[in-house]
């Protein structure tokens, strides 16, 4: 099958590749662009380990064809940290033991990153509802929720100070 020319802006960098139309965004990111932080878990859009940010929205990259994403701006887990090191969410997940095997973590953090932009000071209930598209088998979510809530208040405090 003929390949398509796909152009994406990934983590701020313009990238281009050739891909068959049937290739999924997650496959293009992992196999063609070498960004293996985004994982594959269920393949039917239930588990959310493939979550990336596309044009300012969280999406499940196992259920988006690369062809659909052509021209899009994508942020993956590899693009969350800044020049000054880990993002507050990343350090908060570590600080509050919000991960164990690490497999859901990139999708979890990438989703939480967008959630806190949509709602900078969520309640616990809003975090649980807003993270409902991401499954974790290890943590029971309690420390993930804690990590996100702590990150939210830390980010707000940082913003207030600036």
């Amino acid at each position: 099958m003929k390949k398509m020319h796909i152009e994406l802006t990934v983590n701020g960098q313009p990238m281009e590749t050739l891909a068959e139309p049937r290739e999924l965004l997650v496959h293009v990111l992992r196999e063609r662009l070498g960004l293996t932080g985004t994982h594959i878990g269920c393949e039917t859009s239930h588990c959310g380990v493939c979550t990336v940010d596309m044009n300012g929205k969280s999406v499940k990259s196992c259920t988006v064809f690369a062809a659909q994403a052509n021209g899009a701006t994508i942020t993956t887990i590899e693009g969350i940290a800044g020049a000054d090191g880990m993002h507050i969410l990343q350090s908060s997940f570590r600080e509050h033991h919000g991960l164990q095997c690490g497999y859901c973590t990139p999708g979890m953090i990438t989703r939480a990153w967008r959630l806190l932009q949509e709602n900078p000071s969520p309640t616990e209930e809003e975090v649980r509802f807003g993270m409902a598209g991401n499954l974790c088998r290890c943590t029971g979510y309690q420390n993930i929720v804690k990590a996100i809530l702590h990150a939210a208040s830390e980010m707000s405090a940082k913003e207030a100070a600036e």
């Binding site: 859009s45 999406v59 259920t63 993270m131």
Partner: peptide
């Protein structure tokens, strides 16, 4: 319906 990521699409 579904979850946040799916509702976005």
């Amino acid at each position: 319906i579904a979850d946040p990521q799916i509702r976005n699409v």
